[in-house]
């Protein structure tokens, strides 16, 4: 296994009276796609939000290349090199596609090669470049959200359920796009309930249940073990077969 880029160690998150993450520990190896799987309410989204400090960890360590992220603000973590694609995509609907991308390119003018690569990866963004993002379809918004996360070089991309509510044809397109990201060694932590999508892309699988990690290992092993999939993923697996 490659070096760990991100390491969570005994992370607890409490939101009001609810104890959501209860000692989460796993690693995200550099240059690979790690998929966080689990039933609804298992704590997957909370894990991503905790890494981004959108919710505060009450205990534990979150280390990125040896640097502790605990106690840092969301904007600091983003500037350190994490990009976040939230479940709701976080698109600014009143801004055009171009303006959404301009904001994501914090360092200034676009790297034209990188922009060209992204627009080839997600062609509808080129077509609707000057259109307010509110007019995009769900799939196109998802493409914009991912492109925004990639417009500058980032160490790690956190993506929360990119296939949720997306048409199958767009999911196929997403798989192609993520395969391209893997080809250029982008490190991705992907939350996903669609197991066929997850298994097509993932190098590693981390399964959560009730705020704890219940399985971690190579995706190929989990993909080959149907009985284990049933045990770990249950209904969420059936829903996407």
């Amino acid at each position: 296994m490659s070096d760990a880029l991100l390491r969570l160690e005994g992370v607890h998150t409490r939101i009001g009276q609810y104890h959501i993450l209860q000692g989460v520990s796993f690693v995200v190896p550099k240059g690979q796609v790690t998929v966080l799987l689990g039933r609804n309410g298992a704590g997957k989204t909370t894990t991503l939000r905790t890494i981004m400090a959108l919710w505060k960890a009450t205990e534990g360590e979150i280390m990125l290349s040896g640097m502790n992220l605990i106690g840092r603000t969301t904007d600091e973590i983003a500037r350190i090199g994490l990009a976040y694609v939230p479940e709701n995509m976080g698109i600014f609907g009143g801004l055009t596609v171009r303006e959404n991308m301009v904001l994501a390119a914090r360092a200034g003018p676009f790297d034209r090669n990188r922009l060209g690569w992204l627009l080839d990866l997600f062609p509808p963004l080129r077509t609707f470049w000057n259109l307010p993002a509110t007019h995009l379809s769900g799939g196109q918004k998802q493409m914009l959200s991912i492109a925004r996360a990639l417009i500058e070089k980032r160490d790690l991309i956190l993506v929360d359920e990119p296939t949720k509510g997306i048409a199958p044809v767009i999911i196929e397109h997403m798989i192609t796009a993520f395969e391209e990201l893997k080809r250029v060694n982008t490190t991705v932590l992907l939350v996903e309930q669609n197991f066929s999508f997850a298994s097509a892309l993932g190098d590693n699988a981390v399964v959560m249940d009730e705020g704890r990690i219940v399985h971690a290992g190579p995706m190929a092993d989990l993909a080959a073990d149907r009985a284990r999939q049933k045990t770990l993923l249950g209904l969420s697996l059936d829903a996407h077969q």
């Binding site: 969301t74 983003a78 500037r79 939230p86 600014f92 801004l95 303006e99 904001l103 914090r106």
Partner: peptide
């Protein structure tokens, strides 16, 4: 202007503006 874009974006979703690395 970029400040203007940030204000418009922040009015819609200030959390996402932070997640893009801006000091909201």
């Amino acid at each position: 202007t970029r400040i203007g874009l940030l204000v418009r974006a922040g009015v819609e979703d200030s959390e996402m503006v932070q997640a893009l690395g801006y000091r909201i």
